[in-house]
Amino acid sequence: MINFHKDHANLVNVAFVVFALLSTGIAVAPALTLTETNAPLPDMPVMTAQERRGLEVYVNEGCMGCHTQQVRNIEMDKTWGSRPSIPADYYYSKQRLNVWQQSPSVLGSERTGPDLTNVGVRQASSQWQYLHLYNPRLVVKGSIMPRYGWLFHEVDSADVKPGDVVLPIPADKLPDPGRKVVASAKAQDLVAYLLSLKQAPLPSGVQADAFLRTPGAGGEKVAAAAGEAPAVDGAAVFSQVCAACHQQDAKGLPGAFPALAGSSVVNQEDPTQMIDIVLGGYNARASEGYGPMPPQAEVLTDEQIVAVVNHVRSNFGNNAPPAKIETVKAERAEIAPQTMLP
């Protein structure tokens, strides 16, 4: 029998062997299995070189200090994606970057800011992404995210070259009225990466894992859902989806995102055009400097669309008769039959 109290060599050896064995079993072996079985989903778009450079910016600026990229398999994470994340989702984003930098820890451990798993779907507008990176509080009032001013240049209006990405900053928010803010290559890479963050569809026939209920809180909710469809809160959908661009007061951001308050489209008696815009996107006001509105057909269900449309039509000083879900269903079938949500 080894006497650990007197035999320093064996004390150290045994401690080493025990720890090395435990570490191999709990860390190296499962990590090796996950590495060997690492493969992309069949319908996953290949990461482009620009998106990959954007990922490097994401790592070097330490974005994962505040943003997670994992939809956990619990009900509360439904906000961040339509299904729980699976290992294959990370095939492209978690490869070793280069000799100096390892596979990025994009899953994160703090959600000081929102989860970004599906941000390319949720905030598909590149205009919004640029403005938000340049000064988050331009578009989200209560945000505490840092400004990333060093990813942008200020140039004289005369020096703007064709092909430059000029930010649609409202005139009163410009640092200098005679100048323009232009996105650097790094900012363009980063935005390309952020817009590429979308949950890829699972292969046909494969069922996504169900979300686990929250004990206590979830129980009643799910029980209610079993009886009849829960009423969708249009105000909540508005502040989660629409308010990012159109702002919480629906007054928009002059020059960047149009106002919904008092909008002629919103106040039409017939809601069809408004529903079409929500479903399929809109780019008719580019001449006024407004960015294109990304389509929401894949983001929102019919129930959510009718709820949010009616919320907007009856609030913010607007006064239009409510839309019906039948209109939404009919328009969705017409616009994009392939993007039906279950």
Binding site: P30, L34, P87, Y90, Y91, K94, Q95, Q102, S103, P104
Partner: peptide
């Protein structure tokens, strides 16, 4: 060490 840290292998190692 890099050999087992592709994909979620890295995440296991990160937790450890």
């Amino acid at each position: 060490l890099p050999w087992y840290q592709e994909g979620l292998g890295e995440t296991v190692i990160q937790g450890y």
